[in-house]
Design a protein around this nucleic acid. Structure first.
Lengths: 195, 195
DNA sequence: TTCGTATAGTAGATATATCTACTATACGCT
DNA sequence: AGCGTATAGTAGATATATCTACTATACGAA
């Protein structure tokens, strides 16, 4: 599971609580490539503490609820280093919209266009949220290796969303052109082409 | 769950067994956008039969094991139609390689290049497998709406893989350029730029 | 004759992720 | 006085997917 290693990577910079991990990182900086549920983060921390990858220190607070501060151990650092250096296969990404499109022949063009428009809006919003993330473009990083690597991960998100948007527009146009012909006209056209 | 609707979409064309669904479809034609495990297909069929979306007919065979042929019911067709017409959010796709890259600053360039090369090889193989799928390009479909829609789903897969490959090559180059400077040289360069 | 493969389906365990709903405390607003 | 929000963590249920390992039968190749 990559979540463990994302947590280790974050704790390697600075020790913190499950709450910090969730609110400051998994909901903010790393959200665009690895969102994580609260319950899952806490349970993963428990598991990693048991395995000795992280150490826990209970901090008694009077003004606020007590907190458990987690820090990476030498063993955790070894594990992180090993994981970062190895190949890990990508899980297949399953896209419901592709299932819809694949079986969409029974849908009228009107419905199809509505679905495509919604997809375009959704992906435009995602792209916009990526562009609002506070990570300067590569040209403005003055060669910082750390920031450049982080920016590069964002670049893939941006490029992928742009590709999807272009494809959605192409898809809309292809369907429009298909729909411009009635079934008989299509047959007539096919007769003519096969000459 | 989209798997149910992918199965309904397939059974809507022709009734068949779980074995057929797995070997002829989920391992072949729809594999590139929705692979599915054997056990999951059979269990989903059970659930759908209970819900009345599909009907089962036991076929006694003498030369081979008996088979259960599933067909879509009117209720199943209604459900399929409704699902195809509605918006369904995409699940977030979590990419381990992005986690690696995000935390890769502690890795030497050598290791990073090895990881990138492996990614390039993997994605080139995926792209090649997409190009070998027997679905003619849009220009050769003579306006068949059904085949065009199927081809369009494949087009997204191809476009996405091409985008990833381009990004991987850009990433490699950016890291190369960063690595060409030692830490001191980078600092010197930054001094000069800030003039 | 045994081994691999194709056919056809079943069962149990585990991994990963999500959702809901709790327990607590403190602070500020209405 | 009550409500919303931030802080901090816990617990149970459910959804989705994957892996392994079975039961059976038949056919052909080594």
């Amino acid at each position: 599971m990559s979540l463990e290693y994302a947590i280790l990577g974050l704790l390697d910079v600075v020790p913190m609580t499950g709450y910090d991990l969730k609110t400051r990182y998994f909901d903010k900086t790393v959200a665009y490539f690895w969102p994580a549920d609260k319950a899952q983060i806490y349970r993963t921390l428990d598991k990693m503490a048991e395995a000795g990858w992280v150490a826990v220190r209970l901090e008694i607070q009077t003004e606020r609820p007590n907190r458990k501060v987690y820090s990476i151990t030498p063993l955790g650092q070894t594990e992180l280093q090993a994981w970062l250096s190895a190949y890990h296969p990508s899980p297949v990404s399953r896209e419901p919209f592709l299932v819809q499109l694949f079986f969409a022949d029974q849908l009228p063009n009107e419905t199809l266009f509505r679905l495509i428009e919604t997809q375009i809006e959704v992906h435009q919003a995602i792209l916009q949220s990526y562009n609002q993330i506070d990570l300067p473009p590569l040209s403005a990083l003055n060669g910082s290796r750390e920031l450049s690597l982080r920016r590069l991960t964002l670049e893939l998100g941006i490029a992928t969303e742009q590709t999807v948007l272009e494809w959605l527009k192409q898809t809309r146009q292809v369907i429009e052109e298909l729909g411009a012909l009635t079934k008989n006209e299509t047959e007539a056209k096919n007769m003519a082409t096969s000459d």
